[in-house]
């Protein structure tokens, strides 16, 4: 199974997650968002960029609780709550946002 991005097919697993996070580009992120029926806005991308930076530094995708706390610290208290994140990613911020960010499924994610 694969994901077509700008004429190139990227490998994904059976749930549509990218197999190689180095394949990720913003265009790939946009295609992944379509598979989740997400209308991407700057607020969405802000979370995606955050997740990619977090993964780059720590080699894991954070659990939801950690994500909300860290987002609140970095982007402001009004964004550091699960309501805000679930509005952006209704099927679970960690799961859906990680998929769009091209990251593996988070350990212990809900």
């Amino acid at each position: 199974m694969g994901l077509m991005v700008e004429g190139k097919e990227l490998d994904t697993d059976e749930e549509g997650y990218l197999l190689d996070l180095n394949d990720w580009t913003r265009a790939a992120g946009a295609e992944l968002a379509k598979t989740e029926s997400l209308e991407m806005t700057d607020s969405h991308w802000e979370v995606i960029d955050f997740l990619r930076e977090y993964y780059d530094e720590y080699q894991i995708a954070p659990a939801v609780r950690v994500l909300t706390k860290a987002i609140g610290k970095k982007l402001g208290k009004d964004k550091g709550n699960s309501k805000y994140l679930y509005e952006l990613f209704p099927y679970g911020p960690a799961k859906q946002a990680c998929k769009v960010a091209g990251l593996p499924k988070p350990t212990g994610c809900i």
């Binding site: 977090y54 530094e57 720590y58 080699q59 894991i60 954070p62 950690v66 706390k69 860290a70």
Partner: peptide
Amino acid sequence: NFSPTYGALGDY
């Protein structure tokens, strides 16, 4: 190399 992940434990 999973040693960078120990650095995330403070967030947890």
